[in-house]
Amino acid sequence: MTEMEVPPSRPRASILSNSVFTLIETYSGFRSGWADPEGQQIYLSPDASACSIGSALIKALEASRIFTLENLPIITREQHAERYEAWVKDVIQRYGFKNRAAMFKAMKSVDADVYHQKLHLLPTKHEKREAWGRSNSDKFEDVIISYPNQADAIGEAILLALSRCR
């Protein structure tokens, strides 16, 4: 593998943030990733310190599972959909949102990947109520720092990446 190649399995996490909460959640997988029910799901207030945010991401990344084609678990679309719906219901109840639209309004999403001793934070744009994405034409500037690193430096990098979301 060259320095530029992204390994198919690597530690990863997702960061979702709106005006009510920030969620940092472990993702695992091979090539594509999914919210890992065996990982961390850490809720923080939107004004949490950089150190708290960075510590949460470190925990989530440490819980990310590395898979190969030989040990890849089978997760059906139905299982994924059930987990997702349970998560939405929990967040609506936990934070008292009126409905899904209120929950997802102005929510930002950043993907976090670790490879080649670097933390790659990838800002996204909110494309639909419950969908984020990015393409080359979006011209996002990723945030990349060395990893491992201090929790406060990681938190500052996350805040910068969130500020670049659209």
Rank of each mutant, 00 (worst) to 15 (best):
E3I: 14
M4V: 15
P7T: 04
R10S: 04
P11V: 02
R12A: 12
R12P: 03
I15R: 00
I15H: 01
I15F: 00
L16S: 11
S17F: 06
S17G: 07
N18K: 04
N18L: 06
S19F: 08
L23Y: 01
I24F: 00
I24W: 03
E25V: 11
S28A: 07
S28T: 05
G33R: 08
W34K: 08
W34P: 01
P37W: 03
P37V: 06
P37E: 08
G39P: 06
Q40S: 11
Q40M: 09
I42P: 07
I42H: 06
Y43W: 09
D47K: 10
D47H: 14
S49L: 07
C51Q: 15
S52C: 09
I53P: 00
I53G: 00
S55R: 12
A56G: 05
L57S: 01
L57K: 00
I58N: 08
K59E: 14
A60I: 01
E62S: 09
E62M: 15
A63H: 15
A63K: 13
R65W: 05
T68I: 08
T68Q: 15
L69T: 12
P73H: 03
P73K: 00
I74G: 13
I75P: 01
I75C: 04
I75G: 02
E78G: 09
E78A: 14
E78C: 06
Q79S: 08
H80P: 02
E82N: 12
R83F: 08
R83C: 05
A86H: 08
W87H: 12
V88G: 07
K89V: 15
K89S: 13
V91L: 11
I92Y: 07
I92F: 05
R94Y: 06
Y95M: 06
Y95K: 09
G96D: 07
F97D: 03
F97C: 03
K98Q: 11
K98N: 10
K98Y: 12
N99T: 09
N99C: 10
R100P: 07
R100D: 11
A106N: 13
A106C: 13
M107F: 03
K108G: 08
K108W: 06
K108F: 04
S109Q: 09
D113E: 13
D113Q: 15
D113C: 13
H116M: 11
H116R: 12
Q117R: 11
L119K: 07
L119H: 07
L121R: 00
L121W: 01
L122M: 13
L122Y: 11
P123N: 04
P123M: 03
P123T: 06
T124F: 04
K125Q: 11
K125S: 10
E127G: 12
K128N: 15
R129H: 12
R129W: 08
E130H: 09
A131K: 15
A131W: 11
A131G: 10
A131L: 10
W132V: 02
G133A: 05
G133V: 02
S135P: 06
S135C: 14
S137I: 13
K139I: 08
K139C: 15
F140L: 03
I144P: 01
Y147A: 03
Y147S: 05
Y147G: 04
A151R: 06
D152V: 14
A153H: 09
G155R: 05
E156Q: 11
A157M: 04
A157L: 03
A157H: 02
I158H: 01
L159A: 09
L160V: 12
L162I: 05
R164T: 01
R164W: 06
R166G: 15
